[in-house]
Amino acid sequence: MSAKNHGFPWNLLVGFILSIALTLLAVFVAFYTDFSSHVILWVIGVMALFQAIIQLFMFMHVTEGKEGIINVVNMVNSIILALIIVFGSIWVLTSGHASLH
């Protein structure tokens, strides 16, 4: 583990360049393509998720240490909770609300 730490931090540099590239790509997709806004949202959303994964694995070393697996399970659990909260709220307060009328 520390053997690769002594050298040049390639994983950090690659992660950084990928983050910058993904950010610029998201701007390009959002402003300079003719996709429908629905498609754009999905594409840039997936790129944001990809950037978050880069941060987690290349910068935060989420799998490191004795509790690496616990960390991953904890993160996956939190992400599932976040998705339920976000999509659940939108669903209840848009389609759910609309059916009251």
Binding site: M75, N77, S89
Partner: peptide
């Protein structure tokens, strides 16, 4: 360090509620 990861999990949930309010 393990405890801090658990805290970050709670932070994800905190920000998800703020994002949910924003989207609504």
């Amino acid at each position: 360090i393990l405890g801090f990861w658990v805290f970050l999990g709670a932070e994800i949930v905190l920000f998800s509620t703020l994002f949910a309010s924003y989207f609504v």
